[in-house]
């Protein structure tokens, strides 16, 4: 594997559409649940252990070669909010475009043909990681880092939060991210033998409810 390829894929400027999404932070800010760096850290921690773990294990399983069509179904089953499913497929489609242009691969072409309007983003992420020559742990790390860095950069824009504080939150969460990444990869390895049903299935009801409310707003800065 190439460590540099991991940096390319994990770069927040990788052109795959993430900049327009807040990972639920905009809804949480409006509801008064995020007012500063301390709340942001709690929000990101909650996301890391719930939606983050689920996404990272899907990505890791796809990187291990588990059937992406089955994984896409597993992602649907683990995403109750229709708004979040739509957002995940939009982002999956955008990542597919960037991934195919960056690391052309027959597996990516096949997945794009099967889901022309987009598969769930973590599933695409795992297949893109494979195409880039990366492993399951890399896919899990990318997924988890996005899961916390997206809300952090969104909150910098939404609350004019000091960007050094937001970056400090991400650095503070790094040891926990290591632990969750390990759990995600373990779950993915179980799914190679045991099928997608054994993947982690944690949920964050407030994220799901917030996403549904957010999708109905007339005025918002972020798409989700």
């Amino acid at each position: 594997m190439s460590r540099a390829a991991l940096l390319v894929l994990a770069d927040g400027r990788f052109p795959a559409g993430g900049h327009a999404h807040s990972g639920g932070a905009e809804a949480a800010v409006k509801a008064g649940r995020i007012t500063g760096a301390a709340d942001l850290e709690e929000f990101c921690r909650g996301r890391l252990h719930t939606a983050g773990l689920v996404s990272a294990s899907l990505a890791a399983a796809a990187a291990l070669g588990v059937d992406p069509v089955e994984l896409d179904g597993a992602a649907d089953a683990r995403t109750p909010s229709p708004a979040l499913r739509i957002a995940a497929r939009k982002l999956g489609r955008q990542l597919m475009r960037a991934g195919r242009a960056t690391w052309p691969s027959a597996e990516l072409d096949a997945l794009a043909g099967r889901f022309p309007k987009g598969a769930h983003q973590p599933v695409v992420l795992g297949v893109v990681a494979r195409a880039a020559g990366l492993g399951a742990d890399d896919a899990a790390y990318c997924s988890l880092y996005e899961c916390v860095s997206g809300p952090a950069s969104a909150v910098v824009r939404l609350l004019s939060l000091d960007p050094f504080d937001a970056t400090g939150v991400l650095a503070g969460l790094a040891p926990e991210l290591d632990v969750v990444a390990q759990r995600a990869v373990e779950g993915a390895r179980c799914a190679v033998e045991g099928g997608v049903g054994v993947l982690p299935a944690g949920g964050a009801p407030l994220l799901e409810i917030g996403a549904e409310a957010h999708a109905a707003w007339a005025v918002r800065l972020f798409a989700s």
Partner: peptide, 20 residues
């Protein structure tokens, strides 16, 4: 297209949503 507070990003740096 929704641009996440950065209209120039969506037309210049990350054009995927507009291409779709």
């Amino acid at each position: 297209v929704e641009t996440g507070a950065c209209p120039h990003t969506a037309i210049r740096d990350d054009i995927s949503a507009n291409l779709e």
